[in-house]
Every structure is written in C-alpha cells, then in structure tokens.
Write a protein that binds this DNA or RNA. Structure first.
Lengths: 404, 404
DNA sequence: GGTATTTGTGGTCTGTCACAACAAAAGGGG
DNA sequence: CCCCTTTTGTTGTGACAGACCACAAATACC
C-alpha cells in the first residue's frame, strides 16, 4: 500500500539521484528539475541533511560562468563525507577491497594474494574480514560505513555461494559469516563478480547510453551480467546472464575442465592460449606473449585471434537475439584480444542478424582489475539511492490471473 | 515527481488488481488485503465506481460456505459491463478479432481469411477495420471500448510495422492508419504477435508461476516474447526475444527463405516437413500427416521429430543461459510436435546446462488459434490495470552516472 | 542608490490516509 | 423474542506532504 510517506520517499530518492548525477545545485534549481515546489524541496533537503546524506557547500562563490541575477542560492550537494561503501572481491588468486565515498569515488584500494582453491572458506572469510576492517579504519573520517558487498566468481543466491567451481566451494553462507566478523549492524550482501562488474560499468555511464546492457566477463571461465535501466536483471532464480553456457559449437579448446560446446571453452583464457598453441604458437606462451605477437603482426597470433573472435561473435549473436541490448561491454583479462579483432567480430555479428535488426555497440570495459570490488561498492550505493518498491506497493504480483 | 495523487493512483490500481485476481469481495476485505483502512478503501471504491470500473454486486446473498458473523458486506467486483478490450490479429492468411470484457473474458471472436502477402497494407487495414467495427457493434451493451491492439507477425516499433518479412510489408504506420478508420479517440497500439501471445499466456496464470517466462512461437518462422513480472521485456530497441535468430548449427532444413544456421530454419514448420521428407516421409505430407504418423509410432516420423527436438533443445539452452527463465511456453502450430519429444528435449537441455543450474519447466501453450488477438486485448487490459510509472516519477533514468 | 530578480522560509490550503466513533445488519444464546 | 457480540460502511478529526502565496534577504543591472 502507498501512503504519504511513500511520496516523500520517492521524492527524496529522486532528489538524491539528481544531485548525484548533476552535482551540486541550489534548492530552487533542484525544485525545478524535480517539478516540485521550492518549499517542498527545502523540506526534503532538510530531511536529507539530517540523515547526513547531503550538505550545504561551504564556499558560496559559484562558478563565474553561471552568474545569474537575483539572490544566489546555497549550493546543495551529496555529502562526500556522509558515509562509505565497501566492495570486496574474493577472487581465485587474490582478495581485493575497495572503499568509495558517498559520490562513489574510489578512496581506498587494497589487494593481497590468496589462493582460494587451496584454502577453506573460513580462512577466506577471516582474511578478507581483516582486509576490510583495516581499509575501514583508514577512512573512518569519511563518515560511517553504509554497507558491504562481497563479490565472488560463483553462482550466488540470497547471500549463499551455491557453487564456486573455480575454487571448489559449495553452499557457503558467506553473508552470515561476514556479518559476524566485520561489524554487527552493517548491511552485507554477496554478489556474482560479473554482475558486480556490470553495475560498475553502469556507474561509468553505460546505462545512460542504453537501457539494456550486456556485460561479458572473460577470464578462464566466462560469465556475464545484464542491466536493465541501470539495474541488474537476475532472471527467475538469480542466474541470468551466464553467457559462458551459450553453445557455440560441438567441441572447444580448453581441455576437459569445461563443457564441450560452451562459449567458455572457446573464448576463455585457457582456450585462447590453446588455440594459439594449436596454430603453432609457443607451448609456454602467456596472454602477454600473445598480445605482443599480435602487436608485431605475427600471422600465427592473428589466426588464433581470428578463431577466438569467430567464437565470440557466435556467442554475442545468441545473446543479442534474446536480449536486444543497445550495448555490450567486454571485460576480464581475456577481453583485451578484442581490440585486435573488433572489426571482424562486428562484421560477423551483423552478418548473422536480420537486416533491419539493430545491432548493439560492442566495447571494452574501462574498469581496472579492482573493477569487481568497485562494482560491489556501487551496488550498495545504488541500493541506498534507489526507490524502495516495498515502500510503495508491497505486493506487485503482476495482477493477471484469468478467472473462468 | 510524486504527489498525493500518485498515492491514490497506486492504491486504486492495486485495488483493481486485487479485485481482478481474487474476484469480488467487500470493502472491508479489500482493505485488509491492501493494508489500507476501511474508510480509505471505501473512498477508493467510490472513485472507481464513478469511472464505471467496479460495481456493487446486486444479489446480497453470499455463498453459504462463507457465512460469517456480523453485518455482511456488499460485494464489490470489476464491472463486467464496464468496457471492452479489442485485440485484432493481422495474420499471414487471416484476420482475427477478439473482444474481451472487463475481466478479460473473451466475448466475441471473428475470423476471416485474408492473403496478406498479395494484398496492400491499405486493403488489410480497411478489411480489419470493418471486422473490428462489426465486432464492436455486436457488444455495444458491454460498455465503451477501452482500447485496441493490433497484432502482426513482424518487427514493430512505436505503432509502425518496420519489417513484415512474411507479407512483404515495410514501414507501415499501422497505428495511425487504424486510428482514423476505427474510432477517433480510441487508444490504438500495435504489437508483435509473439509478444501478444506471451502476454496472453500471463493471463492464463504463467506469471504467477515464474517471474521470468519465455514464450517461443513456432510457425514457418520462429519468434518469441519475454515477460518479466508479467510485463513484456522489450530490450533496448523493442526487439528482444527474437529467438528465431538463435544460431543452432551451420545449415538448416527450410530451403533458402531463412538464414542458414538460425533456429527457425531448423524447427519452423517448413523445416520440420523438410526433415520428414529427407528421412523418407511422403513429399506431399502435411503437419497433420506427420502428427498422425507419430501417433501410429511410425519410425520415420519419430526420427524426424527427434531431429527437430534436438535443434529445439539447442535453441532453448541458449535462451536459458541468457535469461534464466522459470518457465518456457511453446506455442504456434509447429509446437504440437513437442508433445512427442518432450522427454528427449528436457533431457538434452539438462545435459547442456551446468549441474546446479536451475532448468525451467517447458510446456505447450493452451491458447487457441485466436491466441494472438486475445493477447492483444490482454495488453490493453494490462495497461489499464497497471500503475502508470510516469505518474510517480516521470524521469527514472537509473541515476548512476559517475562523476570524476 | 533604486529597481528588478531570484532565493529560502514560513503560513495556509488541499488531497490522502489513519484512527475513532457510530449506526446498521447480521448471528448466537437465553 | 430480546439482547449481546461481531462486522460493515460511513462520517468526522488529525497527521502528513505538496501547492500556493507572501515576505525578507541577497544579488545584478541601470
């Protein structure tokens, strides 16, 4: 059910979002953007200031270019020191923690190596909790921590790691374990790494460019995430966007670890190097070696990249036919090859689609190696800055049951 | 921006939905379901009655089983004669019109043959407008028409038919043409046939069973629709769910009309019969012949169905990996074969997915040949019974642009 | 310095929901 | 049959939030 409080909640969240997107502005400007009265806007701002979410900008000097006649307004902005968001990645070979401030700028980044495959979940939780506590201590002056999101390369549901293939963990209640070890009342969530990266990308502005964005994460395994209107699309059970399972052929290159035919056994990092070796590349070649060879114009490397690109294109066509995204972002350490075959891949994708079908743009991710942890922090940020649907209409069961 | 009127709108729509789903009930019961006060509920009902959307049930006699102590309530229900919804299908070989009442029961169904491929769009519009007007006239006592949705097997965007491959129409502004010919102020929308069928299925209760449902339409071509929370998922450009474009191999069976490798050239009706012929079936065999042979246990027919099923399974795996639906509905005249290979298909799908990955249920559509037109009517109904997001927060651009 | 313009704030009005009170309409027990 | 209990629908009052108006304050422009 909706009440007057729902109205206030919606308008407060809209105000926060406008301030986050547009930066600081006066109450009057904000009111105009929101379509609300000046006095109402003032009341909303008073509430938000009480929650330490926004603050009056100290210096009244505004930019010279924006000089206007009349009494100048007091610039209101998101309080950068109003709190912090913590993202942590429990990766296959390292632990990473990123802390962002209220406007989602990264203010701390720590990373240590950690061999998850040969360690117990308990050890992992202990080590990452230590890292989180130390990072939090170093930014205590930036306001209270507002939430923690732990990101892991695994199928995740309701805070429980169902199946982390790459590290052999199953049914680990990560959220509960971390809640106890970090801070009693801190909201904790657990998320799949590709999903977190997808959200991290939306905070780079991708969702401004297209309503539906697909993110493809290429490491040894291949995962993915889908955002719709800047929010994660999770599917019926929370596992949408598992692009590694797309079928692109009958075999693959990555030995026995992955299912034959699956996209990840064609374009994962292992697979890429296997292609290179099969075409005559050195048996000890690394990804860096292959990249170097590509830059030199080495024909063997080019051929390997071409084969990789063809498989990628086949996978992309599948997800395009289903989702019709406006933008596809490629991320993960295996994605760099795309730079060398972008034209071929784009062409192959167009060839397979119907003539009038709108093909998406395909781009490389701009997030660094700490992108997943950053995306985790963004997820908490998004939650805090979003309209809580349960405060508007608790049950929204899509009506639509036909009676006889 | 949200105002008090937004609150009323949300609560009024919630009330309508509860009445639609649960049938009639007293104001007091409705208030309990909605979590609203009795007096508030009464006020909302008064508004809805003024709009002719709901009505007090005439007979005060309630069902004997539901007898309760205390003053009996007056049963409030959706007014069945409060208006009609019109769905029309402009198919390849026939025109169909379905009119439903306020609770989405089909009250009229008319169909005439029409060879769209050899007729101009103008003729098609004229003929279907006649059919619509005559159907409307026959149900004038059921209340005013509330909207019209025309459904067509084509890529549709903003009321314009971009590309109707099967009838050779391109860039036809169908909505505008119909608005002029049917009724001046009637809301008119145009929708893809598979999308309409998907919504028709949600009105059979599918969205109650799973939040994400994929609908696969199998005629000569193969299309599809996706519903999320009972509403259509359209993708960035409105063309999501074009499952016919999924790649499942390198060739196909359906001659040159469709792209090689695409799902529709493997499992479309033409393709199915081509498989049957190639395996030794009669050159003149129809779908009915093949079905008969299957029922007799004819091994040639079984083999053809098996091949068809394998291609279908490959396509389903693709969309499952992307969407993670909880339910897949197969519809269209080509879908009937599924009944004979259901077990094989399910098994093949499970084999290709990761072990812990939740596979969806796969079922046949229960909608008849007028299903698409019915779905069109449901779309209008859904629009009328839905919360209008623009009345809560006009701009919801997913916040999320990271400033530097 | 005076005027025009804009801002922030306080007061009042209106729409919506919550709550309390009450008459009306039923069942149940004596 | 009468009275008590329970439930319903309606009405009146208060709380909350946004709209509108008025006013002091602060600036630009002449």
């Amino acid at each position: 059910m909706a009440t007057q409080q729902s109205v206030r909640h919606v308008n407060a969240m809209c105000a926060l979002n406008v301030l986050f997107r547009e930066g600081g502005m006066s109450r009057a400007d904000l009111g105009r953007v929101l379509g609300l009265n000046r006095s109402t806007t003032g009341s909303i701002i008073a509430d938000l200031m009480a929650e330490r979410l926004v603050i009056e900008h100290e210096s009244h000097s505004r930019h010279p270019g924006t000089a206007r006649v009349g009494r100048p307004g007091i610039v209101i902005e998101i309080d950068p020191a109003g709190g912090t968001f913590i993202g942590a990645e429990l990766g296959v070979d390292r632990l990473t923690v990123v802390v962002t401030d209220m406007v989602c700028r990264q203010i701390v980044h720590r990373s240590i190596s950690f061999d998850a495959a040969h360690r117990s979940p308990e050890t992992g939780v202990r080590r990452i909790a230590e890292l989180i506590r130390s990072a939090m201590a170093s930014v205590a002056d930036r306001g209270p921590p507002r939430g923690l999101c732990v990101v892991i390369p695994a199928l995740v549901k309701d805070g429980v790691v169902c199946n982390a293939l790459t590290m052999g963990w199953r049914d680990v209640p990560l959220a509960t374990m971390l809640r106890q070890r970090v801070m009693p009342d801190l909201p904790v969530m657990v998320e799949n790494d590709a999903n977190a990266l997808a959200i991290g990308e939306t905070y780079r502005g991708t969702s401004q460019r297209s309503d539906v964005v697909a993110f493809l994460l290429i490491e040894n395994g291949v995962g993915g995430g889908i955002t719709v209107g800047g929010r994660l699309f999770r599917g019926a059970f929370g596992f949408a966007g598992e692009f590694g399972q797309l079928i692109v052929g009958r075999g693959g290159f990555s030995g026995g670890r992955q299912k034959p035919g699956h996209l990840e056994s064609y374009i994962g990092k292992d697979a890429l190097l296997a292609i290179y070796r099969r075409k005559g590349g050195s048996a000890a070649a690394t990804l860096a070696d292959l990249l170097g060879a590509l830059q030199r114009g080495d024909p063997t490397a080019r051929m390997a990249a071409s084969i990789w690109g063809r498989a990628l294109a086949r996978g992309l066509v599948q997800l395009i036919a289903v989702l019709n995204p406006g933008l596809i972002i490629l991320g993960g350490s295996g994605a760099v090859i795309f730079r060398h075959v972008a034209a071929e891949v784009t062409k192959a994708v167009h060839r397979e689609l119907l003539q009038t079908y709108p093909a998406p743009e395909i781009e490389l991710s701009t997030l660094g190696p700490e992108g997943a942890a950053f995306g985790g922090a963004c997820l908490i940020h998004q939650q805090m800055f979003s309209i809580d649907q349960s405060r508007i209409a608790q049950d929204r069961p899509a009506l639509t049951l036909l009676r006889d």
